[in-house]
Design a protein around this nucleic acid. Sequence first.
DNA 1: CGACTCGTTGAGACAACTCAATGGGTGTGG
DNA 2: CCACACCCATTGAGTTGTCTCAACGAGTCG
Lengths: 229, 229
Amino acid sequence: MNPAPRRSSLARGALFTELDGRTAEILLNAATQRHFASGATLFHQGDAPSQLFQISTGLVRLTRVNPEGEQTTLRFMGAGDLVGCVAVFRQVAFPATATAGKPTNVLCWGSVQILDLMSRHPAISVNALNTVGDRAREMVDRLAEMTDKGTEARVASVLLRLVGQVGRHGPKGLEITTPVTRKDVSEMTGVSYFTASRILGGWQRQGLVWLGRARIVVLDPERLAQVAG
Amino acid sequence: MNPAPRRSSLARGALFTELDGRTAEILLNAATQRHFASGATLFHQGDAPSQLFQISTGLVRLTRVNPEGEQTTLRFMGAGDLVGCVAVFRQVAFPATATAGKPTNVLCWGSVQILDLMSRHPAISVNALNTVGDRAREMVDRLAEMTDKGTEARVASVLLRLVGQVGRHGPKGLEITTPVTRKDVSEMTGVSYFTASRILGGWQRQGLVWLGRARIVVLDPERLAQVAG
DNA sequence: CGACTCGTTGAGACAACTCAATGGGTGTGG
DNA sequence: CCACACCCATTGAGTTGTCTCAACGAGTCG
């Protein structure tokens, strides 16, 4: 769409929060811009982390191959999110595969380069730490959900989290702005495909959600939050 | 046991890795030592994070209250581990309650103080980032386990993780060096108390583990790893 | 010796899973 | 432009694994 976005619009997102102008400038100059077509993969599970990505526009899907060899969706990430941060900072293999869910623009830094920048500019380190901390927190929450919530509550939580991460106000309600299939929902929930379909269908009948093909719109977030407990 | 441990033995653990002598000295001087009796609580879920803890000796249990108001075990932490790191660095409420599982000595820093130290000594930031990153990684792994492994495999994984975190070689095999009840195992696994008991009982009959009161010894880690998939 | 906590085992119920069949959208190629 | 293949979704029927509930055993502590 926009071949040459303004610099100011790029110097946003996780790594840039509360950075002073000069540091932001340095960080931005060190980055290269890349584009991924829908479906293209940013990196594969198991790869050595050579680059850190920050999403400018678009959407990334993180998947994992389970022991049976099937791809399962772990989470989605949208504008401003850091992709691959844990692996890069920690220098271990990527724990998941990242693919573009729609045409996606990213900023990226070589892992050596970003580590160097961080050691020279503590403010960047702080941002990195905050981001990773947030991720850890989310995972703890999700883990707790898995153990002490029933299936319905888990599906509701996943839906609400999706809305928060990649949702937008649309004409009908809170739309999830990316192709999300029942399969995706079921995998993120730890529920079978069919159960997810049945639960969502039930909610549609009650007017909680509107369902389309690979598309979910949340009509009544309050009631859904109630279901989530 | 040892009322005045040598400084060198204290300057170890997550926050001290690869620190040069002078920085380690500064970090250690800023810390205060505290002792917690078995069962004492370091902090409560929901508290504002005023202090960061690093375990010198002993053991800490992290628990969470679920919506029904019951305490459920999240994980254990042993010597060298940072407790409460995400909350302190991120300055959000503790997501869990920490209690000493046995008499425990810790180093602790005020949250303002440690944040200040980190901004002045990037090497400390790096250690913090690594620790938080490891935690995030573990949580992602656990989450994936929950969704794509069966109950037996999950119990096996939890056992192996416990052995790795708080295990020691003993006369019989790999002992888990802390009171771990069936309830703990079931909560960390997302399985009912009774199912956990039955699964463990079955393994005892097959010679995979030895079971005692609030005690589990892994006799055959290889076979257990096989069960874990 | 009680009282308490921790653990085991059995029997029954039910929720979620598996399997199978059907129906609509979407996109492609002749 | 229609036909076909493919993907996504729904629904039903049957099965099973896990949970629930209840009773009992055994170790530990005061």
